[in-house]
């Protein structure tokens, strides 16, 4: 059974002008169908306004489709009785680290989810310390979130979601407001949780480097899935990506330029090492 199953999901909202009159209808998500298998690491790419955030909020039952249906772990998000179950099965990390930390100390924040779920006190304590451990923030349990760096705050948010024992975590541009070092911390944490705890990850981003290690990539454009495939497949379609206001990692871009100029190297190069190997393979021939 897929952990996330989107069936022809469409989401529309009504735009209003200053006087409150209906100005038009915007279709933010337009007939998206996709399945995510448990344990996968999925990346969703897309320009600003491509509908990727709106789509993400459907998986956590914060938004509901105008048409189509969303199933999380077999539960339909339209089923109101299952709401809490769905939200704890599919946890969500948001972009702004400051606006999602509710507790005044780290520990309290991590406990917020389990408290809402009515988990007994001793178990909450256990979950809090396990979750903080899992994101490498055990020493910060009693700190105020205000004193943490952006990367640390996002790791606290991840811990807060893990404390609800989710099967899947949706991360909605978690690195957009974070510096490179913090970005690395967040990405490492996500990949480790995916490998070690087998939590399915859905990462929404427009940093191309963050996509390289994903299992599958979806590229959204104007509410639709415009491209899908492995990172290697996606990144070999450089000009299409550029048309969608995106780009490719530098290694891929360089490989593409060389290939265009007639250098015989393979498609789908993602990392610097791959590119160096490909070029050096040609080199001994000259000697």
């Amino acid at each position: 059974m897929p952990i996330v199953d989107l069936k022809n999901v469409t989401f529309e909202y009504i735009r209003r002008d200053n006087e409150g009159n209906v100005d038009g209808i915007t279709t933010a998500v337009d007939g998206v169908s996709l399945k995510v298998v448990p344990g996968e690491f999925i990346a969703v790419l897309g320009a600003n306004g491509s509908g990727k955030s709106t789509l993400a909020k459907h998986i956590n039952a914060l938004l509901f489709p105008t048409e189509g249906a969303v199933y999380v772990d077999g539960m339909n998000t339209a089923d109101e009785d299952k709401l809490l179950e769905i939200r704890s099965a599919a946890g969500m990390i948001f972009q702004n680290p400051d606006d999602q930390i509710i507790g005044q100390i780290v520990e309290e924040d991590v406990a917020f989810g389990p408290e809402n779920l009515g988990v007994p006190t001793e178990e909450i304590r256990e979950r809090v310390s396990d979750s903080l451990n899992a994101v490498g923030m055990s020493e910060y349990g009693l700190r105020s979130p205000d004193r943490l760096s952006g990367g640390q705050k996002q790791r606290v948010s991840i811990a807060s979601v893990i404390a609800m024992k989710p099967k899947c975590i949706i991360m909605d541009e978690p690195t957009a407001m974070i510096d490179p070092e913090g970005r690395r911390e967040i990405l490492e944490t996500a990949h480790r949780l995916n490998k070690e705890e087998k939590i399915t990850m859905i990462l929404i981003t427009h940093y191309m480097e963050e996509v390289v290690d994903a299992d599958r990539v979806f590229v959204m454009d104007k509410g639709k899935v415009a491209m899908s495939g492995t990172p290697a497949e996606i990144f070999s379609r450089v000009s299409e990506l550029q048309e969608l206001r995106l780009t490719v990692p530098q290694a891929t871009g360089l490989a593409y330029k060389l290939k265009m100029a007639g250098v015989p190297i393979r498609d789908g190069i993602l990392t610097g090492d791959e590119l160096v190997n490909a070029i050096m393979k040609l080199w001994p021939v000259a000697k």
Binding site: K57, N60, L62, L84, R87, S88, G91, M92, F94, D99, Q100, I102, F112, G113, N116, L117, S160, V161, M164
Partner: peptide, 9 residues
């Protein structure tokens, strides 16, 4: 939204 996402009820 963040509170809702974490099952606040």
């Amino acid at each position: 939204q963040a509170m809702e996402a974490r099952c606040y009820n």
